[in-house]
C-alpha cells in the first residue's frame, strides 16, 4: 500500500505561501464537510433508511447487519484518498461525523419540527467508535489488508455494543393491548406513521437465529465478515475516483 517515494528533504512553506496553503486546507475541509454531510447522509438514508430513522426498527438481526455494512462504504473510500495521498488517518471519523451532523439536523428539523415526531423516537445510531478504531487501525498498520480484516470487523462488531447504552432502555417490556411490547414497539403503535404499517418493519426475519436466542452477536459477526469485503471494495472505489493531478502541478 505504501507509495513509491523518493527520499529527499523539502523545506516547509513559510510566510505568504504558508498562509495560502493553510487557507487552501480550510477551503477543502469546509467543502469536504458539506460534501460528506450531503452525500453520505443521502447514501445512508437510501440504504439503511428506516433502520436508522426509527427506534422501533432497531432490531437484533438486520439493524446490526445492515448499518455497519452500508456505513463502512464512504469511510473506506475517503480513507483511501486521505491516507494514500496525504497520510491523514481521519477519513472514517470525518465521514461518520459528517453523517451524524446531517442526521441530527434532519431528525430535529424534518422529523421533529416539520413532522412532529418526538426526537427520542428518531434517535440516530452512532458509528463513531468504529470509525475511530478504523482510522487508528489504518494509521498503525498502513495496510489495506489488515485494516479491511481487523478494522472492518471491529467497525461491525463495535456497532451494537456501542449503541446498546443508547437504545437498551427502549427495549423495556410493557403490557399493552393484552400483549407484551417494547417501549420502542409502542412508539411505532402510538405515534402514527401514515405510510408505515406494522408489516413493513423488517424485524427478525429469516434464519439468522441458529444459536439459541442470541441473534445480535451472530448478525454482528456476519456483518463483520461482509464489512471486510465491503471495505476493500469501497477503498478501491475511492482510489479510482480520486485524483491529485491538480496538487501535482503546484
Amino acid at each position: 500500500m505504501s507509495l513509491p517515494v523518493t527520499t529527499q528533504s523539502i523545506k516547509p512553506y513559510t510566510g505568504e505561501k504558508a498562509r495560502l496553503v493553510r487557507a487552501y486546507d480550510y477551503l477543502i475541509l469546509v467543502l469536504a464537510l458539506f460534501l460528506f454531510i450531503g452525500s453520505f447522509h443521502l447514501h445512508f438514508a437510501l440504504t439503511v433508511g428506516d433502520w436508522d430513522f426509527w427506534v422501533d426498527w432497531k432490531d437484533r438481526q438486520w439493524w446490526p447487519l445492515v448499518t455497519p455494512l452500508m456505513g463502512i462504504t464512504f469511510p473506506a473510500a475517503v480513507q483511501a484518498v486521505l491516507w494514500d495521498k496525504f497520510r491523514l488517518p481521519l477519513g472514517a471519523t470525518l465521514c461518520v461525523t459528517a453523517l451524524l451532523i446531517g442526521t441530527w439536523i434532519t431528525r430535529i428539523f424534518a422529523y421533529h419540527y416539520w413532522n412532529f415526531f418526538p426526537v427520542n423516537m428518531v434517535l440516530p445510531a452512532t458509528m463513531l467508535p468504529g470509525a475511530l478504531v478504523l482510522d487508528a487501525m489504518l494509521m498503525l498498520s498502513n495496510s489495506l489488508t489488515i485494516t479491511a480484516i481487523a478494522g472492518g470487523s471491529a467497525f461491525a462488531l463495535l456497532f451494537y455494543p456501542s449503541n446498546w447504552p443508547i437504545f437498551a432502555l427502549f427495549h423495556q417490556p410493557v403490557e399493552y393491548a393484552n400483549a407484551q411490547l417494547t417501549l420502542a414497539d409502542l412508539f411505532g403503535f402510538q405515534y402514527i406513521r401514515t405510510g408505515m404499517p406494522e408489516y413493513l418493519r423488517i424485524i427478525e426475519r429469516g434464519t439468522l437465529r441458529t444459536y439459541g436466542q442470541y441473534a445480535a452477536p451472530l448478525a454482528a459477526f456476519c456483518s463483520a465478515l461482509l464489512c471486510t469485503l465491503m471495505y476493500a471494495l469501497w477503498w478501491y472505489i475511492g482510489k479510482w475516483f480520486a485524483t491529485t493531478r491538480y496538487l501535482s502541478k503546484i
Binding site: 517515494v5 527520499t7 475541509l29
Partner: peptide, 25 residues
C-alpha cells in the same frame, strides 16, 4: 471524534503533506 479530527487538522494538511509524502518524509 472531534478531538481526533482536531489533532490532525491543527497542522498543515493537503498541499504540505502531499509534497512531504512525495518526498519520502
Amino acid at each position: 471524534a472531534t478531538g481526533w479530527l482536531l489533532w490532525w487538522v491543527r497542522r498543515p494538511l493537503f498541499i504540505s503533506r502531499y509534497r512531504m509524502l512525495q518526498a519520502g518524509m
